[in-house]
């Protein structure tokens, strides 16, 4: 350690790779969150539907995903599905599928709580002006729920962004994988891992700040 001489040129020389890798990780997180929100919303409605043929399978899905390590899920989908004759996914698609299912399980719990927390007076007011059932969901329940759940959705995005580092395990060139490769080629251990960590930290922090601004903007709901 004492003799370690920092040489930051390894970072500047590879800046384009770092930036592309960071962008890929962000993209994976955002896409997975978007798909996860759709899955989560459908799952949340299934859970509150009162129909056990809908709610039981969804309950099982949520518990299986929540109680299994993410890395295992990634391996299962990427290496396991081809064993069942499903070859259609490349590694990025496979990872997005895994992370989306993972996000969906967590989002379903967030949305379920959100739906439950909406005062029934809003629904009654929506009924009283003559809105039909799906219109009540579309124009009153969902907008209110998204505002209530915004902080949780944002936290999930930050978590998912950090979880994209697990994509390194199946050689997707996101930030962790890229850093490891540059490290292997240059042996600049400290510089590379410090730079990668700094990029995760700065990005996640900026996301948290942006989220706070969004929350303030939608403060119309206590």
């Amino acid at each position: 350690m004492i003799d370690y001489h920092f040489d930051w040129t390894v970072i500047t020389r590879n800046a384009d790779k770092f930036v592309a890798a960071l962008g890929l990780g962000l993209g994976l997180a955002v896409v997975s969150l978007a798909i996860g929100c759709v899955i989560g919303l459908a799952a949340a409605y299934a859970r509150v539907s009162g129909n056990k043929w809908l709610s039981t399978p969804v309950w099982a899905y949520v518990e299986v995903i929540r109680c299994t390590p993410l890395l295992l899920l990634i391996f299962f989908v990427y290496f396991g599905l081809p064993e069942f004759g499903i070859y259609v996914l490349d590694k990025t698609q496979s990872f997005i599928l895994t992370l989306s299912l993972y996000a969906g399980a967590y989002m379903s719990e967030v949305f379920r709580a959100g739906l439950a927390s909406i005062p029934k007076q809003y629904v009654e007011a929506a009924k009283a002006i003559g809105l039909r059932p799906w219109q009540r969901q579309r124009w009153v329940v969902l907008p209110v729920m998204f505002r209530i759940t915004l902080p949780s959705v944002g936290n999930n995005l930050i978590s998912l962004f950090k979880d994209t580092s697990l994509a390194a395990a199946i050689a997707i060139p996101e930030l962790t994988f890229t850093a490891r490769q540059i490290n292997a080629n240059t042996f600049r251990v400290m510089e590379v891992w410090l730079a990668a960590s700094g990029m995760y930290l700065a990005t996640a922090y900026l996301m948290a700040m942006g989220l706070r601004l969004l929350e303030r903007r939608y403060a119309s709901i206590r």
Partner: peptide, 24 residues
């Protein structure tokens, strides 16, 4: 049906004790 009930409700206005304005 819910759609018909909704159409009937549209012809009747209601004002509630707790206002129930849409908060968003």
């Amino acid at each position: 049906s819910e759609a018909k009930v909704s159409a009937q409700r549209a012809r009747i206005g209601m004002v509630f004790q707790s206002f129930n304005l849409f908060p968003h």
